[in-house]
């Protein structure tokens, strides 16, 4: 069994970057100085990820205002809408408004991926994208398309995106799907999710693909999740009880969200290892992925950094009992 560890969402901005972005909005610093600090901070995140042995690395996605903004700002059919609550958190996103069937703009997303991660080699870089179901469900759909059709269409567009990024050398793609567990799809909607991921699977072409869920219990959504043709299914251990997930004869990569970004309390590595061992026994996964259970940018920089040290500690303990697998 291979064990991998990585960030599974955006990393918080450093206090210096918080200050600089505020200053920029107030006209107290210029765009060049802010860009320079973004670059430097992204490199710091990559260095932290490397130091902790995380593989692949993300660069933190610090410039992304929210999960959807790069798409809402660059794809045709969208405008950027009102500030809207991001699930049950005290953070917000600007809800994309879809006025017409969306069309992607070639090169737009690639240009917004963190450069320092790419510079290490695209194979080492971890691409975080919105999943089609969450994307469709969190926008204000005024396009006239049904949600099912939209999920399918976004799946095809994200597949084109993946193809383009594959051609640049990226090999690890994670789709953020909190909505899959917060409002599990049923019937035709569930079928549209499966169809969307089938489109993505074709484009992924043996790349590592991860669906990461959080903010909800994965158990009710598990029948749909298990049908998704992806390498790894990730769920949030703060929300999901492992023994509530049905066993399956099929082997599949499992992702354990073992850092809770809703508290500064640092998790106990031995507890994580205990749950990971139970997961291994239950699913016999060829690949075990450990990462934060939800976006770490729900924490400030310092406690997020502190909590991230859990991953190498847990991996080391697990590897010892797994014959050194990595």
């Amino acid at each position: 069994m291979i064990i991998r560890t990585s960030l599974t969402g955006p990393f918080p901005r450093s206090e210096a970057l918080v200050g600089a972005t505020r200053d920029f909005d107030r006209g107290r610093t210029n765009a060049e100085a802010l860009e320079e600090l973004y670059d430097r901070t992204e490199r710091e995140v990559v260095q932290l990820e490397e130091r902790l042995g995380l593989d692949p690395v993300t660069g933190g996605f610090l410039r992304w205002a929210d999960l959807f903004r790069p798409f809402a700002e660059t794809w045709a059919g969208f405008t950027v809408g009102p500030v809207t609550r991001w699930f049950e958190t005290n953070t917000f996103y600007r809800q994309p408004i879809l006025h017409a069937p969306p069309e992607r703009t070639a090169g737009a997303i690639a240009a917004r991926l963190p450069k320092p991660a790419f510079e290490l080699g695209a194979k080492k870089a971890h691409v975080l994208l919105p999943g089609p179901y969450t994307f469709a469900g969190m926008l204000d759909n005024r396009s006239g398309e049904t949600e099912e059709a939209l999920v399918h269409r976004l799946g095809r567009l994200l597949a084109e995106e993946v193809k383009e990024l594959r051609s640049l050398g990226y090999t690890t793609f994670q789709f953020q799907e909190p909505l899959l567990v917060v409002h599990p799809p049923k019937g035709a909607k569930a079928e549209s999710v499966v169809a969307a991921y089938k489109s993505l699977a074709q484009a992924l072409d043996h790349a590592t693909s991860i669906v990461w869920t959080y903010f909800g219990d994965a158990a009710p959504a598990w029948p749909t999740l298990w049908r998704l043709p992806v390498s790894v299914l990730g769920f949030d251990l703060a929300e999901t009880q492992l023994d509530s997930l049905p066993k399956s004869p099929e082997r599949r990569g499992i992702g354990l969200g073992c850092i809770d970004p809703r508290t500064t309390l640092v998790e106990d590595p031995s507890e994580v290892v205990r749950i990971a061992r139970a997961a291994v026994e239950r699913f016999r996964p060829p690949l075990l992925w450990l990462g934060p259970g939800g976006p770490l940018d729900l924490l400030p920089w310092e406690p997020a950094t502190r909590k991230l040290h859990l991953l190498p500690a847990a991996r080391q303990l697990l590897a010892q009992s797994n014959g050194g697998g990595r």
């Binding site: 918080p12 929210d66 729900l298 400030p300 920089w301």
Partner: peptide
């Protein structure tokens, strides 16, 4: 603990 982004 530090600052958390609310939005933007």
């Amino acid at each position: 603990q530090g600052h958390v982004r609310s939005f933007d």
